[in-house]
Structure formats: C-alpha cells, structure tokens
Amino acid sequence: MLIAAGPARGGVGPSRIKGRARTGRSTGQVLCARWVPARPEPAQRTKTGTEGARPPAGRHSERDSGAVYCPTASTLAMERLVARRTFPVFARTSACRSLFGPVDHEELSRELQMRLAELSAEDQRRWDYNFQQDVPLRGPGRLQWTEVDSDSVPAFYRETVQVGRCRLLVAPRPRPDGAVNCPPPGPPADEPLDGLGEAPAPPSSGPAVTPAPAPAPAPQESAEQEAVPPPRSQEPLAEPPHSGISGRPAPGTAATAAATTAAAAAAAATATATTAAAGGAAIKKLSGPLISDFFAKRKRPAPEAKASNEVPAGCAAPGAAPAVGSAEQTPRKRLR
C-alpha cells in the first residue's frame, strides 16, 4: 500500500479511497494517500457516476405501471394519470425536439475525450498520481506516497465489487510486471521504481488479502502493551463482533465461533494464496466491518497514533509506514 503525506489543502474524506484499493498492486499491497484522490479513475467513475447512480430499472416500471392501473373513471384519477410520468407509453409532445440541429457524434466523442483528459490531468496534478498507470508520480511533489500492506487498513479501503445485494472483496491481483511485497524502507518518492523493479510476490503475500488475515490473532492485551505492535497480525477482520473486543477466543460458544472463523479464515487464506499464485482474481464474501477492525488501532500508543492521524505530519518517516496505513478510522456505512 502506498501512503501519501502532504499539505492539508483540499482534503477529501478518506472514504473515497475505496475506489483506490488497486487492482494490479501486488497481493496484499494497497496504495493509500494521506490526501486521498477525490475521484475514482475514469473507467470506474463511469460506473459510479452514471450507471451506478441510476436507479434500478424496476423502479421505473413501477412508476409507469402505477399509472396504468389507475381507475380511469373519475376525473381525479385521470388527472393522476396525466401526472404520472408516462401513460400509457411515452407520448411524443412538442417538447420532444432537437434545438440546434443534428449532433456530430464523432465530434462529440472527441470533445468528450478531450474533457476527460483535462479532468484526469487535473486529478494527476492534484494527487501527484498517475491514475492511468496506477503509480504515484515520480519526483518531489506536493504529496508523498508510501506503500503499506493492505492488511493494515480496514476492509473498507480494499477493492470490492457489488454482486446483487452482497459486497464482495476482490483479492488483489499480482502486478503483471512483478510487485513489491513489503513497504520499502527508502524514501517514498522512490516507491514506483521499487514497485516496478522487484521480483514477483512471494507466497507470504497471500493471506494479506483476505478479510481474515491472521488465523490466530494475537490477544488484545498483549498487543496493547507492545511498544511496536505489528499491525498486520492484530487485525482479526473476520472475527465475530462478540469476540472482537478481547481478540482472544472466549470460552463457550464464542470459542466455537472463533474456531470456526479461524478455520474459515485459514481456508480463505489458502484459497487466496492459490488464486494469487494463479494470477486470477479471487472474490470472497466480505464479512462486513467489525468493530474489532478498528479497536486495536485506537489502543496504539499515542505517538504512533498521531502519526497515523489524518493530519499530515509533514512527510511520513519511512519507518512509520505501517502505522500510517492503519490510520484511525471510524467504521462507515457501506455505500452502494
């Protein structure tokens, strides 16, 4: 995962990063910016901005058929028929007209491409990030990007797809040209170079993708006392909420549940590792954000918590990379 630190100008809520959890980043690696890109990249935006924003087709037919079933006897009902949008089918009226003659569709399409390019150039400048190639811009810019493990951020920031009513987590695909596995200690500006140059991801990156990365999560108490808590191992993402507070299997039903979850997590991890090795995109059921996802981070010692805050601390020190990635987050409602 990359993290960018920079001035607070034009800060956008971190929720947008959802669209940023990158395909093409190596397994278990997510890019993350302190000041997060305002918009998903063009291809995705087309979905969210247009089709995604349109209401389901069923609702329209509902509206239209609502008119059809009106009783036509009373004048009141008749008025309502007229008022409902289309009755019985869309009747052409004088409002259906072309105002300025025929449209040159090719010219329109060229203009569209030009405007989209303008917008994307603007985005690139604003975020110091090449959204087409999905890499941060090189050189000293306004923002500094750092790659961190995708495990150290809440599931919310990882790429998901909507299938029916379920939101599924997409397992990151390995980058075609090989990818970084862990945050390089060098200055963040070098990251893109490192990312492109390194060898393909070793198997250890497999579990990092899953909603349940650690089959045996560390007990919370010990994590609290650790001076440098390893964020990855204490993210029991798939844990049931009732066991989330302690992070330790409770006796009785909770223990059973935890055991089940752990088993499932292990299975899922294996599955991902396999898929990642095969280079395919594994889709898994996302269990939803649990309060335990966020609890551990709040318990982190103060200096580190500060480093992981929204407020940019100048530029992140190389060593602080994992902590920055696990920035304190409020659980959010999922957006559809």
Binding site: R97, L108, L112
Partner: peptide, 18 residues
C-alpha cells in the same frame, strides 16, 4: 427522447461524468 433522439443515452451518461 426529449431531444428527439439527437443524442444517445450512452452519450448522456458519458457527459454526465464531464
């Protein structure tokens, strides 16, 4: 339809983004 089909729905959606 109200533009007398001088534009296509796809174009409308694309320009929405712009």
């Amino acid at each position: 339809i109200y533009t007398d089909n001088s534009i296509k729905p796809q174009e409308l959606l694309e320009w929405e983004l712009v």
